[in-house]
């Protein structure tokens, strides 16, 4: 698993790349099939797939000259943890904020 998560977050910070992941969640696809469904050019699709590949998010198999891409679900695990953690932390700080408001009112009255 990738030790540094920054490339992973970078790879996901793009709408087309998120759409590619969404497609690959359902089935493995060739570059051509992805390009067609997203209505973007093949070179553009290849470029985005390269970023996802470098971040460890997708793997590729070559069949009869065609590159078929698959999602590495395992690579997404850290994101689940971070997202969950961030949501929990955000909610907790919301509660702290409420608590602090309440404490100040009590302190000043």
């Amino acid at each position: 698993m990738e030790e540094n998560l920054s490339p992973l977050f970078h790879a996901l910070a793009d709408p087309n790349r998120l759409r590619i992941i969404e497609l690959l969640r359902q089935e493995d696809l060739t570059v051509g099939a992805i390009a067609e469904r997203l209505d973007i050019s093949q070179p553009q699709t290849s470029k985005q797939l390269r970023v996802l590949y470098d971040a460890g998010l997708v793997s590729v198999t070559i069949e009869a000259n065609r590159r078929r891409y698959a999602l590495n679900r395992h690579a997404l695990a850290p994101l689940d943890v971070w997202r969950s953690r961030l949501e929990a932390e955000t909610a907790r700080l919301d509660r702290l904020e409420e608590f602090l408001k309440h404490s100040k009112r009590e302190g000043t009255s």
Partner: peptide, 22 residues
């Protein structure tokens, strides 16, 4: 995210001593 660290920053309209006490 910095490497394996999640960083969250937040400002509160409350004195530092009170936030620390929380």
């Amino acid at each position: 995210v910095e490497g394996n660290t999640l960083v969250v920053e937040r400002s509160f309209n409350a004195p530092r001593a009170l936030v620390f006490e929380a």
